[in-house]
């Protein structure tokens, strides 16, 4: 075994995760290797200091309200989804009706009508292009079926 192997074992030794036999092997190595022995002392001290750090416990009311906060978030997220779907539908319907009214209105000039139609055609091309790209990437995403 190299010193690097012993360094990984050093962590398990410090954390009390070593079996008796491996523990003995490690202790024997420490007696014969000054570098590992010095490093071991430093790591042991660091672990002790780090273990002493404990978090301040939040007030009890935080835990009492915790679930309610999570629940409120799930409820609001559902609300936002419904609101967004309805807004898109209403906007699409309103937009369609407005465009229809403009096209049928004889008082609106031909240039304005043509510009409006070109604008709609441009938006449609952009939409189809983005949608096609998304579908292509989704189909070729090697990780889409990865589940834990």
């Amino acid at each position: 075994m190299t010193c690097q192997d012993y360094k990984n074992l050093m962590m398990a030794y410090i954390d009390g995760e070593l079996e008796a036999e491996a523990k003995k092997t490690f202790e024997e190595h420490l007696q014969s290797c000054k570098e590992c022995s010095d490093e071991f002392k430093e790591f042991k001290q660091l672990k002790q200091h780090t273990d002493e750090i404990k978090f301040t416990e939040p007030e009890e009311r935080i835990w009492e309200q915790y679930w309610q906060n999570v629940y409120n978030r799930t409820e609001r997220a559902t609300g936002w989804i419904l609101f967004s779907i309805a807004s898109i539908l209403l906007l699409a319907y309103g937009g369609f009706k407005a465009i229809e009214a403009i096209i049928r209105d004889p008082s609106v000039g031909l240039i304005l009508k043509a510009a409006l139609l070109i604008l709609i055609a441009g938006a449609a091309v952009l939409f189809v292009s983005v949608l096609r790209e998304r579908i292509y990437f989704w189909k070729n995403d090697r990780y889409k079926d990865v589940r834990r």
């Binding site: 939040p58 915790y66 999570v70 978030r73 997220a77 589940r147 834990r148």
Partner: peptide, 27 residues
């Protein structure tokens, strides 16, 4: 504290949304 509370709650919200992807309940 504030960001920790926010992040931990956000994680539960995401978990709730995608819990159907969890195939092994033990995990």
């Amino acid at each position: 504290h504030q960001d920790a509370l926010e992040l931990s709650q956000e994680a539960f919200l995401k978990a709730y949304r995608s819990i159907r992807h969890l195939q092994n309940n033990d995990k």
